[in-house]
């Protein structure tokens, strides 16, 4: 009972998405209109950790929290790439993760999108040049949108995803 009275007192915790600068999100590939129409407002996301420091994962977890609540935009996370429309890739791609990342991409049914989250995914970040790193995400699979930041804030990631499906 205490639980429910607390639920009642707190009310809605979800914050509306603050308007952010266009510079935070940079669209590298123009998402074509067909894809936009296809996904509508239902996007299943499969997250792939290709070798990140897990900082980005922490922020991604924040997306499902009541405050950011990605579900209100119809974005939900799924367990299998077979169910996914979008891959959310973090970290520099390590040598060990290069093939699995490729396999995940292959396992995803078309049409599919790839959002690379974090500076590492774009430039390999602080791990650049390491013997263990195979390259940035776009060297392994085609990327639709990069989200910058180390780590990027949940709102940025949300905007990245939304940019990818061309909602905003």
């Amino acid at each position: 009972m205490r639980l429910f009275s607390k639920i009642f007192q707190v009310g809605l915790a979800t914050e509306p998405l603050p308007p952010g600068g266009a510079d935070v999100v940079r669209l590298l590939h123009e998402v074509d209109a067909r894809v936009r129409r296809l996904f509508g407002r239902a996007v299943a996301v499969r997250q792939v950790d290709a070798g990140s420091c897990n900082g980005c994962e922490l922020e991604i977890t924040g997306l499902t929290s009541p405050v950011y609540d990605s579900e209100r935009f119809g974005i939900h996370f799924v367990a299998s790439p077979r169910h996914a429309d979008m891959l959310l890739v973090t970290g520099p791609v390590t040598r060990n993760m290069a093939v699995p990342l490729l396999k995940t991409y292959e396992a995803t049914p078309a049409p599919k999108l790839v959002v690379a989250v974090g500076d590492c995914a774009r430039t390999c970040g602080v791990f650049q040049g390491s013997y263990a790193v195979a390259g940035s995400v776009d060297q392994i699979i085609p990327v639709d949108v990069f989200v910058d930041g180390c780590p990027p804030e949940p709102t940025d990631i949300l905007r990245g995803i939304l940019a990818a499906i061309g909602r905003r």
């Binding site: 792939v48 299998s80 077979r82 993760m97 699995p100 990342l101 396999k103 396992a107």
Partner: peptide
């Protein structure tokens, strides 16, 4: 495609 097995080779 291959059976999905969390990207194993």
């Amino acid at each position: 495609a291959d059976t999905w097995g969390c990207g194993r080779i």
